[in-house]
Design a protein around this nucleic acid. Sequence first.
DNA 1: CCCACCGACTTTTTT
DNA 2: AGTCGGTGGG
Length: 788
Amino acid sequence: MPELLANLNPEQHAAVTLPNEPALILAGAGSGKTRVLITRIAWLIQQGLASPPTILGVTFTNKAAREMMSRLSALLPIDTRGMWIGTFHGLCNRMLRAHFRDAGLPQTFQILDTADQLSAIKRLMKGLNIDDEKYPAKNLQYFINNAKEQGLRAKDVDATDNFNRKFVELYEAYDQQCQREGVVDFPELLLRCYELLSYNPPLRAHYQARFRHILVDEFQDTNKLQYAWLKLLAGEHNAIFAVGDDDQSIYAFRGANVGNMRDFEQEFKVRNLIKLEQNYRSHGHILDAANHLIANNSRRLGKNLRTDAGHGEPVRVYEAATDSQEAGWIVEEIRALISTGASRSEIAVLYRSNAQSRTIEHTLVNAGIPYRVYGGLRFFERQEVKHALAYLRLIDNPNDDTAFARVVNFPTRGIGARSIEQLADAARLYNTSMAVAIPYVTGKAGTSLGGFANLIAKMRAETAQMSLPETVEYVVRASGLSEFYQNEREGQDRLENLQELVNAATAFVSEEGYGLDTPARSIPLRPGATAAPELVVATDDPGVDVLDAENPADPAQNPDTMTPLAGFLSHASLEAGDNQAQAGQEAVQLMTVHAAKGLEFTAVFITGLEEGLFPHENSAMETDGLEEERRLMYVAITRAKERLYLSFAQSRMLHGQTRYNIRSRFFDELPQETLKWLTPKVEAGARWGGRSDNAGWGRDWFSRPDRQQGYGGGASTVPSAPLPAFANEQRAADTGFRVGQQVFHTKFGEGTVTALEGGGADAKAQVKFKRHGEKWLALAVAKLQAVE
DNA sequence: CCCACCGACTTTTTT
DNA sequence: AGTCGGTGGG
C-alpha cells in the first residue's frame, strides 16, 4: 500500500522494505526510529510477507511496547492478536506460563521484583547465619543478577577465591530456595526461558518456525543473555531486525552491552546496515552541539545527524554562583518562556542525579509554577499495595515465603520475631515453606501462627469463585489492612491506594478481555478449547501453521495460559506502574537525563554541568565511564527541539556539604560558535577581572540581569578558579582566618567566616555577610579584614 | 511490640 | 540534608 510508505525518507523507506534478513538500523535521536519499526511490521503484513502470529516485537519498557501496539493498530486495521509484542521479561513470562511444566515451574509461579528479591536473599542469609557485614545481601543480589545476565548458573561461575566461592554457594542456595517457593526473579525469567528453549529442541523448533520476523527496539541496551535469547529464537533464518543507537547507550551500569551491536553485525553477517541520520526534532545549533560532542567518543559505529530546520537559536549557557542561584535563574527563564506563550509541559529541566531536583523544586514552588517530577515511588511498589499483593500471592501459592514473611505479622497479630524464627527453623528442618511448617511449631507461637494459617485458608476458600476485583476487595478487608490504615493517622492516602488496587484489578480484567465474573483463580478456556492450556508440541512438529490453527492451547490462540489472578500478580511485578509523582495538569517537567531518554521538549535545561556531577565523579572509576557520561550528555542535548540551556554553579550543596566544582569538560567539547554565554565565559585557569558593568549580559531578551544577585560585579567574587576537580573537603590551611571569625569587606560590609578552603594563592573563604548573603572570596584578591 | 535514636548511605533504572 | 535500616529501651 503506497500511502504506508509515503512520507518516509529514502533511508527509512529502505529500512522498512528490507528483505527478511538480519538488519541493523542505526537510528539517531529523533530520526523516526519507532516509526520505522512500526511501519515495517505493517508493511510486512500488508504485503502478505508475514501474518501477525509470525511477528515478535521486543522492547525494554512496557511503555514502548504499548506505544508500538497502539500506533500499529492506528496504522492499519489488523488483528494484533497472535502478534507477540512486549518486553523481554513480559515475553519470557508468557512463554514460561505456557510451558510451565517443561520449564520446571509451578503453574502459579510468581515474580519477585527487586525489593522482593533482596528480602528473599536476606532471609536466606539469616537462615544460614551468614554475616551480613562480610557478605552484604546487596552485593550478593548484584552477584546473582550479574551471573544470570551472563547466562551463568552457580555451577558455571568460576570461583576464583574463597570470597567468591561463598557467593557461588549462596547463589546455589538462593536458586534452590526460589525453586522451593515457586518464585522467579527478573533475570531468572530470561535465563529460565533461555534454558527452556535450549534444552527443548522441539519447542525451540516450534518457536523458531513461528517467529520468522523478530524486531528489536533499543538494541544497544540489550545484555548478553538477551542477545543470546534473541539469537536462539532467530535460529536458522536469523532474521532479526535490530534498531538502535550506540550513541544513546546509557545503561552499561545495569548490564547493557553496546558491543552487542558490533557482535550482531559480525555474527549475523549483517549485509543490511542502514543509518537514519535525518533528524526531525532539533534545530541546527542544537544538533551541531550534539554531533560535535559525541565525536569525542571512540569506538562508535559512526553517525552524524543532520536537519533541514535552520540553525535556530544558539545554545544558551549560564554560570551561577550557587545551586540556588542556578535554580533562581532557571525559574526566571521558565517564567519568561511561559509569558511568551510556551506550554509548561514543553519545558524540561534535566539533571544528572535525583538529589539535584530539590533546590529546583523549592524554587518552583516559591514561584508558584506547577511542575511534575518523574522518578518517584511507583504504584505497585507502595508498601500498602505490596502488602495486599502479598496476601493475594499467598492465596495463590502458600509456598511463597517472601509474601508470607511480609504479612504474617502485618497488621500485627502477636507474631513476633521469635515465633517467626521458630517457624523458619521448622521449615528448614522439614525442607518446606513456612506456611506448610506451621503445624510443626508448638506452644504459644504455634497457636498464633495457626490463627494466621486459618486466616489464609479462609481467604482461599472464600475467594474460590470470586472474580479478580472481588477477590482483591475481599482480601484488603479480610486481611485487616483496610481497618489498620483506617486507624492510622496518615493512613488516608494508603487506603485510597488500596481502593485504587481494586480499580486496577477491574481495569486489568477488562483489558485482558475476561468476563467480569470470571473466577480469579481458574483458567478460562476460550470457546472450543478443551485442552489444559499448556502448549504441547509434538516432536515431529511440522511448524507454525498446524499449531496455530489447531492447538487451542497455543498462547497465540488462547491468551489465557494463566489465571486472572496470576496474570494480575505478574502484571504488578512486571509493570510497577507510572513513574510520575503528580500526573495531570500543564506542568514543567523535571527528571534525570536517563528518564528523559526517548522524550522531546521545545525547551530543555541541562543543569549542574560541573565536573564531578556531570560527568559524575563515580564514572571516572569505570571502564569507558566517561564515554557513557558523554553519551548521556548527548541524549540530554538531543531532547531539545528549539531551545537549549546549559547551566552550572560554582558551588553546590550536596549531601550536607558545600562543594566547589569547575564547569564540566563538556563545555570544551561543544562547538563554541553555537554557544551564547549569558554570563561572561571565564577561560580555564583565568581569574575574573574587576568587572563592574554587566557587559555581556542582557543582550538576550530572556535574561534578566536586574534579577541576578550575588554574582558578577564584585572583583573579589571567586571565579571558576582552577580548583581540583571533585574537590569537596574543606581544607583550612594558612589562610590567616578561622571559621566563625568576624570580618569586614569594603564592598559587602560585615560578615562571619563560615568556611575556608585551599591555601596560599588559591585560598578562599566563605563569608556570610549581614546584608549580602554568603559569598566565596579569593583571599588573594578580596580585601578582607579581620574584625577584633 | 512500638518507638526513638543512631549511623550509614547517597549516579543513573527497567523489568 | 534527608532517608532508611538496624538496635535498644520502655
